[in-house]
């Protein structure tokens, strides 16, 4: 009864990158290895490889984003692609054009790849299902569903510091319920064989039965980060206070804010990650964010290599990508 994975072509190669769900460990490892081969590019004098020369990549952002959109743009340009940035929240959809019409119009401009961010869960699937067969779709975040390139750059960062996933204990702290980042991270960590994935949050910020996601649940921060190798803090959206999910930022920080003192419960060489942007004093202390354990800025630079990897792989040029090492 299981349907074919729409992310893969008939040869089992990555065609779209929409979610970690359904991808095998080998595929995720290939993404990480390919990204590894691209890290050198950014350090060259001429920061470009000609893999996607002549290709047009359209960044279609229906939601505001600075960092993600910028790193996708940088990644595309380092692959020598032409980049079209469309901030659609301020353009055609407000004039009543349907998403399908937007897609058809851009297709008519011979776009080869869409990088899409949209507030609806399933928007990237919708694009991949309806786009012409030669077009690849990369999900840059859809609703509360998935943000697979963010998850892969997080995996890349973890692998850089910890090498192996087996034997690792990883804690994700915060608003898992509304977080597409957390969903993708949990899937990636489990697929890569992480020994234990924990989530730490009050029940209002967790799905009704989070165990179905393959995680261990903690409601107490210090208990949850005891002996972990990696602590991933999630951003807390301000609107969570108005939805009766939390009483106040103050109480949240009291219970779940990461401080130097609390971090002592983790392993001595534990790293601290955050997908950004950070609410200092809400999710974590500045001391921790800027401290020696924090790898938050590395996440951003690795993001470019990971996005180059995914873009070249979905366009069928990853073999040359490895050769460009």
């Amino acid at each position: 009864m299981s349907k074919p994975n729409i992310q893969l072509d008939s040869h089992g190669r990555l065609k779209h990158f929409l979610t970690i769900d359904g991808l095998k460990r080998e595929m995720l490892t290939e993404i990480l290895d390919t990204a590894e081969s691209f890290t050198g590019v950014s350090e060259r004098v001429v920061k470009k490889v000609p893999l996607l020369r002549g290709k047009t990549i359209c960044n279609l952002f229906f939601e505001n984003s600075t960092r993600t959109r910028t790193t996708f743009e940088v990644a595309a340009k380092r692959l020598s692609a032409d980049v079209l940035n469309l901030n659609v929240s301020t353009s055609s959809t407000t004039k009543g054009e349907t998403l399908l019409d937007t897609l058809r119009n851009l297709e008519a401009m011979h776009v080869d790849m869409f990088v899409i961010r949209h507030s609806d869960s399933g928007a990237a699937h919708f694009f991949a299902t309806h786009a012409a067969p030669h077009i690849s779709v990369i999900n840059a975040g859809d609703g509360q569903h998935a943000h697979p390139t963010q998850a892969m750059l997080d995996m890349f960062t973890i692998r850089r510091h910890k090498e192996e996933f087996t034997g690792l204990r990883v804690a994700i702290v915060g608003d898992v319920l509304h977080s597409r980042v957390a969903r993708s991270q949990i899937l990636a960590l489990n697929t890569l064989g992480t020994s234990e994935v924990r989530v730490i949050a009050p029940r209002t910020l967790l799905p009704p039965d989070p165990r179905t996601l393959g995680v261990h649940i903690f409601h107490d921060l210090e208990e949850g980060i005891r002996d972990v190798d990696v602590v991933i803090m999630l951003r807390l959206q301000k609107e969570r206070m108005t939805g009766a999910l939390l009483p106040s930022e103050h109480e949240y920080f009291q219970l779940y804010g990461l401080t130097e003192k609390r971090l002592k419960a983790a392993k001595p060489d534990a790293i601290v990650m955050h997908p950004g942007p950070i609410n200092r004093g809400v999710e974590m202390d500045s001391q921790v964010a800027d401290g020696p354990r924090s790898v938050i800025l590395q996440q951003v630079s690795f993001g470019i290599a990971v996005r180059m990897a995914v873009m070249s792989m979905t366009m069928g040029t990853q073999a040359q990508g490895a050769a460009a090492r």
Binding site: D21, D142, R183, P208
Partner: peptide, 18 residues
């Protein structure tokens, strides 16, 4: 909400209807 609040909506990131 858009879908039954349960494992499928949790995985798809669709706000659930309990």
């Amino acid at each position: 909400g858009y879908a039954h609040e349960g494992p499928v909506s949790a995985r798809l990131g669709l706000p659930g209807i309990p």
